[in-house]
């Protein structure tokens, strides 16, 4: 497809309370700020603390459906390994990236969760041919003062994979993150970029 007409499709997956919805929202806002048509939707009914959360974001010159088609996402952003695996099939089998926080949250309500948890999810996806970019985002965020900023670490890495200018990302973060949390989040964003080899100038 002509680069001018390309629609970018992203799927954010995580566990309720991890901030995947916020990450999706910041991406959508950055895309609006960059002048794109944008649509965003949550596709899970009962999103609650501890449940699977699935948010779709699409942007381009003209977006029709807010819902991403399986096999067509440019990036699947997984805030947790099991959820990344659960939604990985949304990624484009050839060009799609699975950007994942190498972090495990066991499903508390499931008996034998430890035994059933797919600890080898990332290797499994690599064997399936996906381009897996794994970051220890929760640990990186914790080192910066708050493990909850893992979502913004991933956004930093995501920003290197999308045509939205770096300055627009920073403006959006400054606009969206309350002053009290702004500086550590900007650092988390920069660390995420650096982790995939693109340090912030």
């Amino acid at each position: 497809m002509d680069e001018q007409e390309k629609i970018y499709s992203l799927l954010f997956a995580g566990v309720g309370g991890q901030g995947s919805l916020l990450a999706a929202e910041i991406t959508a806002r950055a895309a609006v700020r960059a002048g794109y048509d944008v649509k965003q939707t949550e596709v899970h009914g009962v999103s609650q603390r501890g449940g699977s959360v699935e948010t779709h974001v699409r942007f381009g010159p003209k977006v029709w459906s807010p819902v991403v088609t399986p096999g067509r996402a440019d990036v699947v952003v997984g805030l947790e390994k099991l959820e990344a695996l659960r939604f990985a099939h949304f990624g484009h089998p050839r060009d799609g990236v699975v950007l994942v926080n190498d972090h495990e949250i066991l499903p508390g309500s499931v008996p034998d969760a430890e035994a059933k948890y797919p600890h080898e999810a990332l290797d499994f996806l690599r064997r399936k041919g996906y381009r897996v970019v794994a970051l220890k985002a929760s640990e990186m965020a914790r080192d910066l003062g708050d493990g909850r900023m893992a979502n913004v670490v991933l956004l930093g890495a995501l920003s290197t994979m999308l045509p939205i200018p770096q300055a627009v990302w920073l403006e959006t973060l400054q606009h969206r993150i309350p002053e009290k949390y702004r500086q550590p989040n900007l650092r988390a964003f920069a660390e995420g970029r650096a982790a995939v080899g693109q340090p912030t100038p």
């Binding site: 609650q48 699977s52 695996l85 499903p107 059933k116 948890y117 797919p118």
Partner: peptide, 9 residues
């Protein structure tokens, strides 16, 4: 993907 554990409400 094998039998992935769910996170039911």
């Amino acid at each position: 993907k094998g039998d992935l554990p769910m996170r039911p409400p």
